[in-house]
């Protein structure tokens, strides 16, 4: 699964810019490059039915096979549907408002994810995966969770395909 590219855990890559130790809300949810800050959600590919699931799971939720491999999902996608969350939902301590969107990744997988925005985004808006701070856990670790960002500039070259390449 791992290519030649150096993948640091998110904690390591973000420690340099924040004062407190940081960790993802869930291990194995995403990975970030220590070189250019690229963030990938981590999914799993099933070698039996060839389908991709997010978050990664040992058993394929489509067919039940245990022959799955963790893989990086494409960082880029387009908004299919988007709504705005104005009030903090239960257990959430990050910023509001934010968008919740169905995003079509460049691999054609549809995912549901938060998007950094103060308004409903139009269908077709191009977004890229990032992380956001969503409060602290009981030990005082800064919690990080995936959050997509609107791409202002959209150079074709930035649309790297990672998964399946």
């Amino acid at each position: 699964m791992t290519s030649g590219r150096a993948i640091a855990s998110v904690g390591q890559s973000v420690v340099s810019v924040v004062a407190m130790p940081a960790k993802p809300v869930r291990e194995g949810l995403f990975a970030a490059s220590s070189e250019d800050g690229t963030v990938w959600l981590l999914g799993s590919e099933c070698t039996k039915c060839a389908r991709t699931a997010f978050p990664a799971s040992e058993l394929c939720p489509y067919c039940g096979s245990d022959r799955t491999q963790v893989s990086r999902l494409p960082s880029d996608g387009v908004v299919e549907l988007c709504t705005l969350v104005r009030k903090s939902p239960p257990g959430y301590r990050g910023p509001t408002p934010y968008g919740l969107a169905v995003i079509r990744l460049t691999s054609d997988l549809l995912i549901v994810a938060p998007v950094e925005t103060h308004e409903v985004l139009a269908c077709g808006t191009r977004v890229r995966c990032g992380v956001r701070e969503v409060g602290e856990d009981e030990e005082g670790n800064l919690l990080l969770a995936p959050c997509f960002r609107v791409l202002e500039v959209q150079p074709e070259a930035s649309l790297m395909r990672v998964v399946g390449s």
């Binding site: 949810l29 549907l81 239960p90 257990g91 959430y92 934010y98 919740l100 549901v112 969503v134």
Partner: peptide, 26 residues
């Protein structure tokens, strides 16, 4: 009001994903 449900895992709540009316809206 918005009900805290054991259906969502802690990390989903923390990530801002336990937002039931937003799924209805989508």
């Amino acid at each position: 009001g918005m009900i805290r449900s054991s259906f969502f895992d802690l990390w989903q709540e923390q990530a801002g994903l336990a937002v039931t009316p937003a799924y209805f809206a989508l």
